[in-house]
Design a binder for these strands. Structure first.
Length: 302
DNA sequence: CTTAAGCCCTGCTGGC
DNA sequence: TGCCAGCAGGGCTTAA
C-alpha cells in the first residue's frame, strides 16, 4: 500500500529516468485508469485527449505532495504549465522497461519514451486493482496553504505533507484539535496533513502511545504534537529503507521491494508480542480500516 | 458546515 | 477438490 515513503521512493526512481525524456507514443490498455474510483466510464474522447495531450511532450522533474505524484510536462509552451498527474492508489506501480519486454497483464498504460541521448525505453503504469489514477492537469498554486508549491488542479484540496519545509506541525496540531473524530481518522484525512495511510497511522499512534479511538479534540495538544512528530519520524525511517512491501503490490521502478516491513511495530502483527512491552498486539476497526494496537502501550487517555 | 458510511476493483483466504 | 462469501484498502461521493 503506497503511502508517502513508497510514493517518494517511486518519485526518486522516476527522477533517474524522466527529466529531459520525450514521450513518443502512448498505449492505453485500460482507459479506466483515467477515471476515479467513482467515475469508471471513460468517454473515448477523454482517452483520445489524454493520448494527444501527452504525446510529443517532454518530462520535467517528478514532484510529490503526500501520496500524490506528478510529472510536469516541459516544452509544450503551455501557460499555465501542465503535468501528468498520478495516484498509485492501492496497487499502482511505475516500471521502466526495455521496449521489447513482455507486457505484464495488469499494465494499464504504456508510454514509449526517448531519453535525451536518444535511447528508447518504456514507462509502464501497472495497477492490479485500478484504484490508481492517471491524468493531465494544469499546475496551480493553491491559495489555502502556506506553501508556494504549484500542484495539479485536481490536488488543490490536498494538504501539504510532513516532509515539506513549509509544514508547521504546531499549526497542524491546532487544526487536529478542532476535530471531533477519532485521532486515527484525522491522521488519514488528507486535507489536514497528507501522506499518512493506514500503515503509518498505526505506527505513529503506537510510537506516541495514543489510542486510535481517542477523540482528537480531547487529546492534550502536546500528545497530538507527539503523534504528528512520530508520523514524520516513522515515514523518514521507512523512506531510508525504500518503503514498506508486504507482497509484490508495491515495488520501485526497477521492481525492487522496500524492506521497512521488518521494522513495523504493530501493523500486521496481530497476536504477536509488542516489541516494547511484550503484550500481544490486538486488532480493531476504526473508520472501517483494520487497526493494530498494543493495549498496554496505547491506553485510552488524554 | 462537519462527520460517517458506501462504493469502486481484483486476488487471496477460509469455510463447507 | 471446487465454489463462493468475505476481506483488504484510498479517496471520492453521497447521506445524515
Amino acid at each position: 500500500m503506497p503511502e508517502l515513503p513508497e510514493v517518494e521512493s517511486v518519485r526518486r526512481g522516476l527522477a533517474d529516468w524522466l527529466p529531459g525524456a520525450r514521450v513518443d507514443a502512448v498505449r492505453l490498455h485500460d482507459p479506466r485508469i483515467l477515471g476515479t474510483t467513482s467515475q469508471r466510464t471513460i468517454a473515448p474522447a477523454a482517452a483520445e485527449a489524454f493520448a494527444t495531450g501527452i504525446t510529443g511532450a517532454g518530462f520535467d522533474v517528478p514532484a510529490r505532495r503526500g501520496k500524490f505524484l506528478w510529472v510536469p510536462l516541459a516544452g509544450t509552451g503551455d501557460t499555465p504549465e501542465r503535468a501528468l498527474s498520478v495516484h498509485l492508489g492501492m496497487s499502482g506501480q511505475f516500471r521502466i522497461h526495455e521496449p521489447g519486454d513482455p507486457v505484464h497483464r495488469h499494465t494499464r498504460a504504456d508510454f514509449t519514451c526517448f531519453s535525451p541521448d536518444g535511447r528508447e525505453f518504456s514507462l509502464r503504469f501497472v495497477d492490479q486493482r485500478i484504484f490508481g489514477h492517471l491524468g493531465i492537469d494544469e499546475l496551480t498554486v493553491p491559495g489555502r496553504w502556506n506553501s508556494s508549491l504549484p500542484v495539479p488542479a485536481q490536488m488543490t484540496h490536498i494538504a501539504p505533507d510532513p516532509l515539506e519545509e513549509s509544514t508547521d506541525l504546531d499549526a497542524i496540531a491546532r487544526l487536529v484539535k478542532t476535530k471531533r473524530s477519532a485521532i486515527k481518522s484525522v491522521l488519514l484525512d488528507q486535507s489536514v496533513l497528507s501522506g499518512i495511510g493506514n500503515i503509518y497511522a498505526d505506527e505513529a499512534l503506537h510510537r506516541a502511545g495514543v489510542h486510535p479511538l481517542a477523540q482528537a479534540c480531547r487529546l492534550r495538544i502536546s500528545r497530538v504534537r507527539t503523534v504528528l512528530e512520530s508520523a514524520r519520524e516513522v515515514m523518514l525511517e521507512a523512506l531510508e529503507q525504500g518503503g514498506t512491501s508486504f507482497d509484490a503490490l508495491y515495488v520501485n521502478v526497477n521492481g525492487e521491494s522496500g524492506y521497512f516491513d521488518r521494522s513495523l511495530g504493530v501493523y500486521g502483527r496481530t497476536g504477536q508480542p509488542c516489541l516494547r512491552c511484550g503484550a500481544l498486539i490486538t486488532r480493531l476497526v476504526v473508520g472501517g480500516r483494520g487497526t493494530h494496537i498494543c493495549l498496554q502501550c496505547q491506553k485510552p487517555q488524554r
